[in-house]
Nucleic acid binder design. Structure first.
Length: 879
RNA sequence: GCGGGAGUGGCCGAGUUUGGCCAAAGGCGGCGGACUUAAGAUCCGCUCACUCAGGUGUUCGUGGGUUCGAAUCCCUCCUCCCGCACCA
């Protein structure tokens, strides 16, 4: 009972009621004929079955922004869906003796309810789920399209294999120095498997180049993608290796070729393998000793030699473990004088170290102890000596017969095959005669067979399902039993929202062209490379299939920080999680939303705190109470100076809040709004407020809060007597010009500060009368003249003004003050404005000191006080 | 090693783009007061130091520099976080 009283409002009643009302009114539905709506999107959740605080934060950010844009008059597309394929559902199904589909659908039910309880304003009519055949058939369709465009290939390759998930992983899905699975943390092994690949490397250059233009993205994400793509311009060239003919190497430093004094092969290189067959020492090294993970460069010398194509010299050939099969060509030229690692190796093996690049021709570096790795001028390099590194690279690439420009990338093609059940079947039929054949369009979707528990690949066990006929020759054939990486599902889902029910195409092309790209995308940093890179690639590939006019999917990106508990990541395993449901239950969704939004700007981490939640809730209580009191006993005060002050503050708050919502910081908007509510309460406590002014303040505060705390805002909006939803209202506009608002606030604040200082420093016990004296007009004019003037001494200039000159000594003295502060002068409000602003603020001083306060122009004040008044700084007399 | 980000008062955290009322918002914590039987909640004030009329001094990782003026611009160094890395 008492709880209820204290609470002031019953969130348990209010929140579901408004959620129902929005739903019934279709408030957040956006029609298909909407004209280029603002597209606001949060990364759709994986269907784990429960919402966690990270979700709450993510989706509150998008919801608040979407609601804000709506208040600004935009049409807003704010959809949600479910990333609902994936291994955890298989595990969960096995644990619970059900199947992944039923499990996933029940997770979706639960999560949808939780989201609705949070009051997120989604267009639920556009909801999608990737495990829906009507969705994943378009994954299959894209697979075909990509295949036709030459972007799909199959090859046997060494792949990352997670023994726990029993499936392969893309390179992007292997994390950390210890190479563990991104999903379960199990150390990854390698296996040789036939895999389907999507040709993301075809787009490597464009993916790298376009990062430059993504200035709506955070720097760190762009950087991470750049690193991942790992573009290295250099050259390929051949070395003749004895008995083996030409062997190709890649180098970024062909300018150092005259210093290439050894040649090295990866243990996995064909020549190394062949040598190992015959030579015990080499076999021992390749099979036993080689340690690509180790810090020490190890190697073994072979009997072979290679011919340095620049010098013609025969140089020794090594098999070395620091040469990696999958980097470059698996062979390299060693230049110990100019590469740290080559230097270490050469020192160890007693290979010659020759300097061929120098800071200048006169100062050839001593490379016996350490390599010189900078660019410079070539030395000891035959005809090229004296040439700058950059120019030498061009010339040498041109002059050496086998050399060609070559750009190397770290990025590899995207292996999308997964040996799991709960994913999109790869739409291929394996025909003994025709090989792999695409399933024709009209047979899509290839649906999943019934789930059976097995070790190994579940689809491989589905013998009935597997058996089919070849689309080409009609003979007996088998279906491909791998499914697609679930990142395929999420690589284009943002397009599906445009036309979620389209049965003829993945998306409506015309509408997508109009609605895309996503204007504001919000999600976790963990997808900086994987999801965001795949989505960019797929978007570009689709664009090249002339299905889309946009080449980038996400115009602006915010990566949200983590929600921490006691400085640590919230997680089940640490047992420090805070359940959103429990918070909603105890305090309501609005409180949870308000707290997460005011705690920190979206990109930063923040610590969950109980006091923070309570203070957010406390604020909503007070706000509610303030509105209730207004309704119950409407004030009848005058439209006096105080009302004018409050009205100005309302305007200033609107301006500040708008800015904060625009740049998605939120914290500032919420702080300003809190301050405004606090001011209104002070106003009411101090005097009987002017009803209209007070009402406007309340209605502004309600609208400023509406994006973040929508339920209580609706409630109060209707309490204030407005028809319709606040969700569909207009963002408030300042009533007056707010360009001076900051300066006015400053003047009031400074003046109050000064009064405090004087009272304090002078030790005035009980001030009775505070007189604030505003500077005369001539001082304002003098200030303006001084700011404008570039004369060496401003006094002379001032004295040309008759009225100022007439002030005599006083003018000279003020002129001297101005001269002294010449460079730091800032313009002031006009004298009458200064007077008005201060008059409007007297109540604050009266309230604070219990003294009578008057604001007077200099002409009406005692001269001894008045002469101290300056623009921006009134004189103050306290008695 | 390469690249990115960051170091602000007891703590968290704005301010840095566009140098100037910046001793530096706001919150938390702490202190004092009002209200209360009390606690809580709420409200008011204080919270770098010195200072009896709005003053002064020392502060924004370190050390320099530019400027009339620097938390803000430039350089050095230190520390922390993140990504990439025996990458040819």
């Amino acid at each position: 009972m008492q709880d209820q009283d204290q609470r002031g409002f019953d969130h348990g009643e209010i929140e579901p009621r408004w959620q129902r009302e929005w739903e019934e009114a279709g408030t957040f539905h956006i029609p298909d004929d909407a004209d280029d709506p603002t597209y606001v999107l949060g990364m759709f959740p994986y269907t784990s079955g429960e919402l966690h605080m990270g979700h709450v934060r993510n989706y509150t950010i998008t919801d608040a922004y979407a609601r804000y844009r709506k208040l600004q008059g935009d049409e807003v597309l704010h959809p949600i869906g479910w990333d609902s394929f994936g291994l955890p559902a298989e595990n969960a199904a096995i644990e619970r003796d059900t199947n992944p589909r039923d499990w996933t659908l029940s997770c979706i039910e639960t999560m949808r309810e939780q989201m609705q309880a949070m009051g997120f304003g989604y267009d639920w009519e556009r909801e999608i789920a990737t495990c829906d055949p009507e969705y994943f058939r378009w994954n299959q369709w894209l697979f075909q399209q990509f295949h036709d465009a030459g972007l799909v290939h199959r090859e046997a390759s060494e792949v990352n294999w997670c023994p726990d998930c029993e499936t392969v992983l893309a390179d992007e899905q292997v994390e950390g120095d210890d190479e563990h699975c991104w999903r379960c943390g199990t150390p990854v092994e390698t296996r040789e498997l036939d895999q389907w690949f999507w040709g993301i490397t075809e787009y490597a250059d464009e993916l790298a180049d376009d990062l430059e233009e993504l200035d709506g993205w955070p720097d760190n994400v762009r950087q991470m993608q750049e690193n991942w793509i790992g573009r290295q311009p250099g050259a390929r060239l051949e070395f003749q290796v004895s008995d083996n003919g030409p062997v190709e190497v890649f180098t970024t430093r062909i300018d150092t070729i005259y210093g290439a004094t050894f040649f090295a092969l990866a243990p996995g290189h064909a020549i190394s393998q062949a040598l190992a067959e015959e030579d015990d020492e080499i076999r021992h090294f390749v099979e036993e000793e080689a340690d690509p993970e180790g810090d020490e460069p190890n190697g073994v010398r072979t009997d072979l030699t290679a011919t340095n194509p620049a010098t013609g010299e025969e140089i020794p050939v090594f098999v070395a473990d620091f040469v990696l099969s999958d980097v470059g060509t698996g062979a390299l030229m060693g230049v110990p004088g100019h590469d740290d690692r080559d230097h270490a190796f050469a020192s160890d093996q007693g290979v010659d170290i020759v300097p061929v690049v120098a800071p200048s021709p006169e100062e050839v570096p001593d490379v016996s102890e350490a390599a010189y790795t900078d660019d410079g001028v070539l030395v000891n390099s035959g005809d090229y000596s004296g040439t700058e590194s950059a120019a030498a690279r061009e010339e040498l690439t041109r002059d050496i017969a086998s050399a060609t420009d070559h750009v190397q990338y770290r990025l590899r093609d995207w292996g999308i095959s997964r040996q799991r059940y709960w994913g999109t079947p790869i739409p291929v039929v394996e025909c003994p005669d025709c090989g792999p054949v695409m399933v024709p369009d009209e047979e899509l979707p290839v649906e999943l067979p019934e789930f059976v528990q097995t070790t190994g690949n579940p689809l491989d066990e589905a013998t009935e399902w597997k058996r089919t006929t070849c689309p080409d020759c009609g003979g007996d054939a088998e279906r491909e039993t791998d499914t697609m990486d679930t990142f395929v599902d999420s690589s284009w889902y943002f397009l599906r929202y445009v036309s979620p029910d389209d049965a003829d195409a993945p998306f409506d092309v015309e509408r997508a062209n109009e609605w895309m790209p996503v204007d504001q995308y919000v999600g976790g940093i963990e997808h900086a490379v994987m999801h965001l890179l795949y989505s960019r690639f797929v978007t570009k590939a689709i664009a090249d299939m002339e299905l889309l006019e946009h080449r980038e999917p996400f115009e602006n990106l915010v990566t949200q920080g983590m929600v921490l508990a006691d400085g640590e990541k919230m997680s089940k395993s640490k047992g420090n999680g805070v359940s959103p449901l429990a918070i909603v239950d105890e305090f309501g969704a609005d409180t949870a939303r308000l707290f997460t939004m005011q705690a920190a700007r979206p990109p930063r981490d923040f610590d969950w705190s109980e006091t923070g939640v309570q203070s957010a809730n406390g604020f909503l209580q007070r706000f509610h109470e303030t509105v209730e009191m207004f309704r119950e006993s409407p004030p009848e005060g005058d439209e006096d100076a105080i009302a004018a002050y409050v009205a100005r503050e309302v305007d200033a708050t609107i301006a500040a809040a708008r800015e904060s919502y625009d740049d998605l910081t939120f914290t500032e908007a919420l702080r300003e709004t809190r301050d405004l509510v606090g001011l209104l309460r002070q106003y009411r406590e101090y005097t009987d407020p002017h009803a209209e002014t007070f009402e406007r303040g309340l209605s502004v505060a309600v609208r400023l809060l509406a994006p973040v705390t929508p339920h209580i805002a609706e409630e109060l909006w209707s309490t204030l007597g407005h028809d319709g939803f606040v969700a569909e209202a207009s963002f408030p506009e300042p009533a007056g010009d707010v360009s001076d608002a900051e300066r006015e606030r400053q003047l009031v604040e400074n003046t109050r500060e000064d009064v405090r200082n004087i009272v304090d420093v002078a030790g005035i016990e009980d001030p009775e009368q505070v007189t604030i004296v505003v500077a005369p007009a001539w001082k304002h004019r003098a200030l303006d003249i001084a700011i404008e003037s570039d004369a060496p001494n401003v006094i002379g200039e001032l004295m040309q003004d008759e009225e100022i000159r007439a002030k005599g000594d006083e003018a000279a003295s003020y002129g001297q003050d101005l001269q002294n502060e010449r460079q730091s002068l800032t313009s002031a409000l006009a004298p009458d404005r200064e007077l008005a602003v201060l008059e409007q603020a007297t109540w604050l001083v009266e309230r604070e000191f219990g003294a009578e306060v008057s604001v007077v122009p200099a002409s009406e004040a005692d001269e001894s006080v008045a002469k101290k008044a300056a623009p921006n700084r009134p004189a103050i007399r306290i008695d």
